[in-house]
Design a protein around this nucleic acid. Structure first.
Lengths: 165, 165
DNA sequence: GTCGCTAGATGATATTAATTCTCAAGTGAG
DNA sequence: CTCACTTGAGAATTAATATCATCTAGCGAC
């Protein structure tokens, strides 16, 4: 997909979802600003669930004068618009995910690495009925040890916050 | 269980798990202090997953001069000893649970209420095999609307942090 | 039993880190 | 052109941790 044409040499996948994002925003009367585009783009490209801090650090290089407040505001706004998701793990700081479709997360309890994963059998998990509560979704996280942490048999349990960059 | 005897009129369930907790601590060479007892007791009694702040506020009435630092230290210490668990809440403020057995959480996305729940069919959920990752446990959260938030049809989306008291 | 000793716990306070707030200035989109 | 909305800068707030002097739980000695 996203094949280059002779008339759109610079059009690649990135441009594709950029315009996709712009169309979506316009249809919802959401203003498109360079800051918003950049934040969304970074989250869509970086699958490691960056923190607000990390998004700021990297974007401030491309957008001189960018403010931290804008990052926090934009992330919060996107979340409220269901354009992105905030993934929370105990003791960790906010991390964000542009993948709003059904999927699970894989969390390494040693290094804090957090990855998207899609386990079809979990998607299909029947949403249980709970008396007096309207369950809308199952938020499932697979916690354990990633390859490298598993290999380094150091039995260091993660202590305190995992400040992933 | 926990039947009263003629010789121990004042012994009730609370005293029971107090001594249970003390025994556990002594067997593990963990010092028993009034502060630790009080913190553990509060978490064992209050199933609403209080925050550190909330634990402090309530305990400082019973233990004048109690320090916030002690609360944070004690909670962190208990967590490292697997006596309690830290549960992730949307706004990323730490909330704690003395229930360390297998169970799930029910989270209201509107009011932030967080309850323990035990869904046997979820306990039994097969831990999926993931290539290059050692999955140890499934952390499952049921997200939706609690009774009262469901009734008040206000479509207020939770915005920002849910500061549960 | 009680007396002291000491590793470890606590209280008070400072500090750091994450996030939100405030408000003047700037700008996207009609 | 206009104006409601967004941004930048920096202050403010909040959550959590660090530091350090003081205190004490638990242990052995008596």
């Amino acid at each position: 997909m996203s094949r280059k044409t002779t008339t759109t040499r610079r059009r690649d996948e990135v441009t594709d979802w950029c315009s996709e994002f712009e169309r979506l925003c316009r249809s919802r009367r959401i203003r498109v600003t360079p800051q918003r585009l950049a934040v969304y783009r970074m989250l869509a490209e970086d699958l490691s669930h960056p923190t607000a801090e990390s998004v700021y650090e990297r974007l401030s290089k491309q957008l001189p004068g960018l403010s931290q407040a804008t990052i926090y505001r934009t992330l919060q706004f996107f979340e409220s618009e269901n354009l992105i998701r905030r993934v929370s793990s105990p003791g960790a700081i906010g991390r964000f995910d542009a993948n709003v479709g059904p999927h699970q997360h894989l969390l390494c309890r040693a290094c804090g690495r957090l990855e998207d994963i899609s386990v079809p059998e979990l998607h299909k998990a029947r949403i249980p009925h709970v008396e007096g509560f309207k369950v809308e979704e199952l938020d499932i996280r697979l916690v354990g040890l990633c390859g490298s942490c598993s290999r380094s048999k150091s039995s260091i349990k993660r202590r305190g916050k995992t400040r992933a960059k």
